[in-house]
Simulated assay, not measured.
Amino acid sequence: MILWFSASEATDVEIAGGKGASLAAMTAAGFPVPAGFILPSHLMLQVLDAAKLATLARSRDHAGAMAYVREAATVPDEVLSAYDTLGGKVAVRSSASAEDSDAASYAGQQETFLAIEGREAVREAVVECWASFFSERAIFYRGKMGSLDDLRMAVVVQEMVPAEKAGVMFTVHPITRRKDRMMIEAVHGLGEQVVSGEVTPAQYVVDRKGRLKKTAKPGEDVLDAAELTELSGFGQRLAEHYGVPQDIEWAIASGRLYLLQSRPITTL
């Protein structure tokens, strides 16, 4: 019913989805990833009628599919017991099997829920992640980029980092495409502000050794020189680990850097 990030099967994209497999691979490689577990991609189809879901998806009946998931889905007690092991606040994230591949990024097509606390709240968030796999936007994108017959979607439940600073990092400059430059965007608080476009982040362009080359700040500095060096070092290691440029989500809490996600940059 669940796979901890440390499980060998958790690195399998077919089982853990793109996001889950990436987090498990990063954990196995020794990167600083917050603890968590994965509801494997087959679980949704075990607790629901797969044939009915497939029919609703093929007919692009997003409203019917989402309503069916919300009405019929059950979350096994083993999932909630695993949450008890983590305790406190968690992030509950969708992780589709076709997500975050080298060819396409499904970022934003399914739901993510942050700062979820308590068994009932976790249960509701898991069901909403499953339901979001059939949203109008997700079905349209999957029909265009993948296959409506693909019903594999895992869910990640992960310790929530109480971020003091957070953001995203691109291991190749996403605009100029210079391979000798990285771009780091940072805010005070949760990095979701950057991902959602809620606030304008401080932007740092650094070389491969983390030395600052250019900056644009709407206000005060967010990152110091040591933090830029540490971030760029992990960025290089992740790019080398995966063999392609990476788009990385990160957070800093109590002076410690955490890596929350890493996926290929698909716009280069």
Rank of each mutant, 00 (worst) to 15 (best):
A7F: 11
A98Y: 15
S59T: 11
D207W: 12
A51W: 09
G235I: 02
A115W: 14
Q46K: 15
Y141K: 15
V194R: 12
E227S: 05
S22M: 03
G36T: 03
D207A: 07
A251H: 10
A163F: 01
D224F: 10
E120N: 13
G30N: 02
Q261F: 01
T112V: 11
D150M: 10
P245M: 13
F31E: 06
T11A: 13
T27Y: 06
L114W: 11
G243I: 03
A216F: 13
D100G: 08
L114F: 12
V90M: 05
V127E: 06
V244A: 01
T55R: 15
T55P: 02
E159P: 04
A82L: 07
A35W: 00
W130I: 01
P174I: 00
V161S: 11
V126A: 02
P245N: 08
F31P: 14
E227M: 07
A103Y: 15
S6V: 05
G20Q: 05
Q158G: 02
V127I: 15
M1Q: 13
A73N: 10
L212W: 05
A125V: 09
P201M: 10
E14L: 14
R137L: 01
A82F: 09
Y204V: 01
G255K: 11
K144G: 01
R93M: 02
W4C: 13
V156S: 04
S135M: 09
A91E: 01
L231I: 04
R263C: 04
R211Q: 09
E9G: 04
G243Q: 08
R178L: 02
G87A: 09
S97H: 13
K213Q: 10
A186K: 08
P174V: 00
E99Q: 10
H241E: 06
E249H: 12
V122K: 05
E78W: 03
T171R: 11
A163H: 03
A98T: 08
L228D: 01
Q109P: 07
A125Y: 14
A63N: 08
E111L: 12
D84S: 14
D150H: 13
A65K: 12
F170D: 07
A29Y: 13
F170P: 14
M182K: 15
D247E: 12
A253R: 11
S196I: 06
S196E: 09
L190S: 14
R60C: 07
V205I: 15
G64C: 11
G143N: 05
R211P: 02
G87P: 12
E124N: 14
T85R: 14
G233H: 14
I248S: 02
L228P: 01
H173L: 04
A186W: 05
